[in-house]
Design a protein around this nucleic acid. Structure first.
Length: 224
DNA sequence: GCCAACGTTGGC
DNA sequence: GCCAACGTTGGC
């Protein structure tokens, strides 16, 4: 499937929806308000109230799974194998996740997270090499993530380009991250509010520099 | 394969 | 604008 530079994202959420500035939309139940209160003032990213994120975590499925006869598998090895080790993170169909992608800046780092697989966890690091632009797969009827409600003159979905940087020195399993999260939630620590645990199904999520650095430091520790 | 969590849809 | 029904995510 990806002869050119094509990355398949694993997890999106139900497509469609009406508001193309999903910001408000998603926080429906009023439960989770996502720090993505960016919406209205997307132009001025320095608007107060919209925290500047600098690091990210992006989920994708490393194991084969067929959706409409199409394999959605895309693990870190698949990214690494692309020309220039670069691919577009297409297929995101969730407003919160999309909005986070729109905040990404060239040069920022993101963890490549393996989801829906034998061993979920952080596999490696990648870099944002192209800021958000129109995700062409929303118009492609053949694509798993085709969205009939999105029109070319007013596209709903965006993507970024990412480039493989490196594998983690050791794979960091979700189970281990969760232990730290629980520990930090109880006694304080950098992972106490990590989005991976506080925003269950979000496929593109922000990390603070502290979270990112702490996770990197785990590479040199023995598994918990 | 199960199912909890949660985003989206649509009736009212 | 509320909220129940529904569909998806993703760990286990």
């Amino acid at each position: 499937m990806p002869p050119k530079k094509k990355a398949r994202v694993s997890k999106r959420t139900a497509s469609s929806g009406k508001d193309d500035d999903g910001e408000t939309v998603s926080s429906a139940g009023g439960k989770r308000k996502a720090a993505a209160s960016v919406g209205k003032n997307e132009k001025c990213s320095e608007s107060p109230g919209s925290p500047q994120y600098s690091h990210w975590l992006m989920k994708s499925e490393p194991e084969s799974r067929f959706e409409n006869d199409i394999d959605v598998k895309f693990g870190i090895e698949d990214l690494k194998a692309l020309p220039d080790q670069t691919g577009c993170w297409d297929g995101v169909r969730n407003y919160q996740a999309r909005n986070f992608m729109r905040q990404m800046k060239e040069g920022q780092l993101a963890f490549f997270y393996h989801s829906n697989c034998k061993e979920p966890g952080i596999a490696g690091v990648m870099k944002i090499v192209k800021e958000s632009y129109v995700d062409h797969t929303q118009f492609d009827k053949k694509d798993v993530h085709y969205d009939a409600t999105s029109k070319p003159d007013n596209p709903k979905w965006s993507m970024v380009d990412v480039q493989y940087q490196r594998m983690m020195k050791r794979f960091l399993p979700l189970s281990e991250l969760k232990k730290y999260h629980l520990q930090h939630r109880a006694n304080g620590g950098p992972l106490k509010d990590m989005a991976l645990f506080t925003r269950a199904r979000l496929s593109v999520q922000p990390l603070t520099a502290e979270e990112f650095d702490f996770i990197l430091s785990l590479e040199d520790e023995v598994a918990l």
